[in-house]
């Protein structure tokens, strides 16, 4: 990961990890991916065509939040260790949330008062 630095003659700083660092923050959070996976199939929309993304944004891995150029590359990705690890993680318990943090600190469930509008 990471591109090459212009100063190749400096031995210590050969690679820049800037791009890798930036990519790290562009990836969706665990809880967002978890929520997406938990959605029933009817709510899932077909992937929009986006020419800026690899493969027009049609070959997407929901678990890893990555786009691929074609089906072959995506299926290759499904076989990788990283993807399998991610799938296993998403099968487990729900990610930590602010509510979990509140409960862990000895707070009760939030009190929203009586429902004003009865549907």
């Amino acid at each position: 990961m990471g591109g090459k630095c212009p100063h190749r003659n400096v031995k210590k700083r050969r690679y820049s990890h800037k791009t890798h660092r930036r990519d790290k923050f562009l990836v969706k959070g665990d809880d967002m991916v978890y929520d997406q996976l938990k959605k029933p199939d009817e709510e899932k929309k077909p992937l929009p065509v986006d020419e800026d993304l690899p493969g027009m944004g049609q070959y997407y891995c929901l678990h890893c939040d990555r786009y691929f150029a074609n089906v072959a590359v995506r299926d290759e990705h499904f076989k990788t260790k990283r993807h399998k690890k991610r799938v296993k993680q998403m099968m487990g318990p729900a990610p930590h949330t602010q509510l979990d943090a509140d409960i862990a600190s000895g707070m009760g469930m939030p009190d929203n008062g009586p429902k004003l509008m009865s549907m």
Partner: peptide, 27 residues
């Protein structure tokens, strides 16, 4: 060192009636 860990692993008291008082009250 987090509370979430300590709760999950039974290091701290988890179920108690005293936890019912402090709440996020949105009313």
């Amino acid at each position: 060192w987090t509370k979430a860990y300590r709760r999950l692993h039974g290091k701290d008291m988890t179920q108690d009636s005293t936890f019912e008082f402090e709440r996020k009250r949105n009313r």
